[in-house]
Amino acid sequence: MTGVVAAKVPAVTMPRSNDRPAKISFRNITKEFVSKARGTSTKALNGLSLDIAEKDFVCLIGPSGCGKSTLLNLIGGFEHATSGDVLLDGVRVTAPGPDRGVVFQEGALFPWLNVLDNVCFGPRRLGLPRERYLEEAHAILEEVGLLPFARHLPAELSGGMRQRVAIARALINHPPVLLMDEPFAALDPQTRVLMQEMLLRIWEHDNRTVLFITHDVEEALFLGTRVVVMSSRPGRILKDVRAELPRPRDFSVFGHPEFVKVKAELFALVREQTIAAAADASGNAGTVRTP
């Protein structure tokens, strides 16, 4: 396993959503962003703890600037917590690695590589044999419906197609954990639903652990096994609900009475937090001048 220090952190009993072992643990995380130029520091997260069990599909929602992307960047190994532990399988995360596939919001495909080469980037870096990963790349592109576009450059694709390539590129490494940072936010509503259904189809097939960041309540409830609502900055966890809707899910679940009811509740909660964030000195909550 790359990017993870071998020192095991002793297991601590934490409240869990179910009896499976925690794949990802955030323990008492505080994250402060210090701006030397302006002499201020902003607390994005303040003492946040969250456990994500193996095979959980956790959707994290909350108002803009609540620190949900920061949380993903911490487990992704792109940023480091000011204090607290970020654990993957009980081991502290220090750097990015192929054991955590990441799908970014947009613009993260390598523009100089065609679709196939973008997808093969990971296996090539990992030194896998060419015949094996080429076959797999074709299978994955087939699954996301992009095999006819294997030789196209990202600039020649639509936004939805690009995100399908991004998903394929992350999946080919078989990461036990998939991290998704508002991957469908820039897509039109019709394309977004198709992408959500495709993602569910893939997930229902392999059941990997997913952390999915979104600001869309409907998307969170549609996709997740669990929906976690964060407060406005500094981010804390306000609500943690299990989404017990029938699977396999498709768009018809949007009309399900339970779906409608929970969606309304969560929407009200996020709205409250968004108003709080807006009222709080134009979103400067948690910012203090450093001495």
């Binding site: 190994g77 792109f78 192929p98 970014f104 613009g107 993260a108 990971g122 992350a170």
Partner: peptide
């Protein structure tokens, strides 16, 4: 270089 490309590269296994 767009930092998101560096993040993508690292998370895909580039040293």
């Amino acid at each position: 270089v767009n930092p998101v490309l560096l993040r993508a590269g690292r998370s895909l296994g580039a040293t």
